[in-house]
Design a protein around this nucleic acid. Structure first.
Length: 442
RNA sequence: GUGGGUAUAGUUCAGUUGGCUAGAAUGCCAGAUUGUGGCUCUGGAGGUCGUCGGUUCAAGUCCGACUACCCACCCCA
C-alpha cells in the first residue's frame, strides 16, 4: 500500500543526485562558523517533553499543537525536538560547560520535527543549521552572530536576502508594552479579525504582524515597542545598530517582527528572501537571556539563530546558485571474461587504495555496454582487459575526453594512471591560477 | 486546524463533446558483423490512468467519498 512506498507526509528524501548540495551547504556553514569560533555540538533528536514545554514556551503553537510527543516504554513523555536551542541549553547545563571560560560558542546541523500542514518551504521534518552562544551579554555578541549568519548566506547565495532586526526588550519592559498593546487593541476588538482576537490574550504582539488589511490599519497607530523598552535595552539595541553599521551590514528595523518562541529577549532578527514562497524566512534568531536560568542553569545571557536548510537549498536552486560538482569517476576498467574481470577488480581496488575513484563492471555487461556506462559515469580514463591483455601484459588506456589512446603494461598500470591523473590535476591548478590572474588584472 | 488546486509509464506531460489493444518525449535495456563511449537509426521492457463507490451499452474522461501532493491562511526555519 501507499504506506510502504510513500514517505510520511511532510518529509522529503534527499536523493544521490542532490545530496552533494546539502553536503556543500552544511560543510560551508560549519566551516564559516568555526572561523567565528563556534564548535559543533551534537545532542539527541528526542528529549523529555518537559524541556521543550518549559524552554520553548507552554503557550506557543510549537509546543501546544506541533510536537511529536509519545510515551516510551518506561512511561516517560518524550518529544522529538521541534527546534535546536532547548536541547543545546540542556546539554551545556548538564555538563557544566558554563563553568568554563565564557563565551561558549556552539554550532549544529539537525533535523527538527513539527506536526504542521506542509506547504512550500514548510515540512514536518525540517533541517536546520544553528548556533548558540552563551555568556556574552554585550551587543558585540549580537553583531557577531548576525555577521556570521550573513557571511554564510552571502557565501552560498547570490539572491538578495534582507536583514530585519528589532528589540522586544527584557521581560520587564515587554510586560509594560504588552499591557499597552492589550489596552489599545481591546478598544478595537470588534474590528479585529478572528485570529487576532485570539491573539489579544495570548500574544498581542503578534497582531502587529497580521496580514488582514483591517488589522494592519489598526496596528498603524498602536504603541511602538521601541518607545517602551527600558534604558538598558535601548542602549543594547543602539549598540547593536552601531556595530552593524561599522561592519557594513545593511538592515532595517522592523518593529513588527516578533519571534514565535517565548524565550526571546531584546534582539530578534530575521533574514528574509523574496525568492521563496510565503515561507520567506531563511534564518531567524535572537537573544534569550532568561532561558538558561529558567531551565535550571546559572543565570547566563545567550543568543543564537536557526537557519532553515530546506529553504536555503530551495532558495539557492531557485536563484541559480552554483554548487561545486563532486569529483566523478577517474578510471573505468572494462573486462571480458572471467579472469579479466578478476584482474580488473584487482586494479580498481589498487587505484582506490591510491585515493582515486575507479570502477569496473559488476553486472556482466558486454564490452560495448560497459563503454556506454563508462561514458555515463563521466570517467576520465578507460581501459579494457581481456584474454589478449592478460597474455601480452599490454593495456590500452583511453582518454575519454579526447579519445586519445596510449599504452602501458598491466604491471605498471596503477603507476601509469597515477601519473596521468596527477598531471591532470596540475593542469587544473594552473588553469585556476590563470583565471585568477586574468580576474585580478580586470 | 481553515480554504483553493492537482492526481495518466522511472521522470515531464498529451489524451479533443464519455467510444475500438492508453500515447509522446526523456530515461532504462538490447541490437546496427568480428573486443571500445558520445551522434544517428531500430527494437524491447515499463501504467489495475491515486483508491473505493456511483451514473452509462460504454469512464482516463462525468458525479461522490477517501487518500496523497501542491499553493495560501495560520505558524515558523
Amino acid at each position: 500500500m501507499a504506506l510502504l512506498t510513500n514517505a510520511p507526509r511532510g518529509t522529503q528524501d534527499i536523493l544521490p543526485s542532490d545530496s552533494f548540495k546539502w553536503r556543500y551547504v552544511e560543510a560551508t556553514a560549519l566551516d564559516i562558523a568555526e572561523k567565528y569560533g563556534f564548535k559543533e555540538i551534537r545532542t539527541p533528536v528526542f528529549e523529555h517533553t518537559e524541556l521543550f514545554s518549559r524552554g520553548v514556551g507552554e503557550t506557543t503553537d510549537v509546543v501546544q499543537k506541533e510536537m511529536y510527543t509519545f510515551n516510551d516504554k518506561g512511561g516517560r513523555s518524550i518529544s522529538l525536538r521541534p527546534e535546536g536551542t532547548a536541547g543545546v541549553c540542556r546539554s551545556v547545563i548538564e555538563h557544566g560547560l558554563l563553568n568554563d571560560a565564557l563565551p561558549l560558542k556552539t554550532s549544529y546541523v539537525v533535523s527538527c520535527f513539527r506536526y504542521e500542514k506542509p506547504q512550500k518551504g514548510r515540512f514536518r521534518e525540517l533541517h536546520q543549521f544553528g548556533v548558540e552562544a552563551f555568556g556574552a551579554s554585550s551587543p558585540s555578541a549580537d553583531a557577531e552572530v548576525i555577521s556570521l549568519a550573513k557571511s554564510i548566506l552571502d557565501t552560498l547565495c547570490n539572491g538578495s536576502i534582507r536583514l530585519e532586526i528589532n528589540s522586544i526588550g527584557c521581560p520587564e519592559c515587554r510586560k509594560n508594552y504588552q499591557n499597552a498593546l492589550k489596552e489599545y487593541f481591546s478598544s478595537h476588538s470588534s474590528e479585529l479579525c478572528e485570529t487576532c482576537n485570539g491573539r489579544l490574550e495570548r500574544n498581542p504582539m503578534r497582531i502587529l504582524d497580521c496580514k488582514s488589511p483591517v488589522c494592519k490599519e489598526i496596528s498603524k497607530n498602536a504603541p511602538k515597542i521601541l518607545d517602551y523598552i527600558c534604558a538598558d535595552c535601548k542602549e543594547h539595541f543602539d549598540g547593536l545598530k552601531k556595530r552593524l553599521d561599522a561592519l557594513g551590514i545593511d538592515y532595517t528595523v522592523n518593529p513588527t517582527i516578533v519571534r514565535g518562541l517565548d524565550y526571546y529577549t531584546r534582539t530578534v532578527f530575521e533574514f528574509i528572501s523574496d525568492d521563496l514562497g510565503s515561507q520567506s524566512t531563511v534564518c531567524g534568531g535572537g537573544r534569550y537571556d532568561g532561558l538558561v536560568e529558567s531551565l535550571g542553569g546559572p543565570k547566563t545571557p545567550a543568543l543564537g539563530f536557526g537557519m532553515g536548510l530546506d529553504r536555503l537549498v530551495m532558495l539557492m536552486q531557485a536563484t541559480g546558485c552554483l554548487f561545486p560538482t563532486p569529483e566523478g569517476c577517474d578510471v573505468y576498467i572494462g573486462s571480458s571474461g572471467e579472469n579479466a574481470a578478476v584482474e580488473a577488480m584487482r586494479l580498481v581496488t589498487a587505484l582506490r587504495d591510491e585515493g582515486f575513484c575507479a570502477e569496473c563492471d559488476t553486472v556482466g555487461r558486454s564490452i560495448k555496454a560497459q563503454m556506454k556506462y563508462c561514458d555515463k559515469l563521466g570517467a576520465k580514463y578507460s581501459a579494457i582487459i581481456g584474454d589478449n591483455e592478460l597474455e601480452s601484459g599490454i593495456v590500452e588506456v583511453k582518454d575519454m575526453r579526447d579519445g586519445s589512446k596510449s599504452q602501458t603494461t598491466l604491471s605498471g598500470f596503477v603507476k601509469f594512471i597515477y601519473n596521468k591523473l596527477i598531471s591532470d590535476s596540475f593542469d587544473d591548478i594552473s588553469d585556476a591560477f590563470d583565471n585568477m590572474e586574468s580576474n585580478f588584472s580586470k
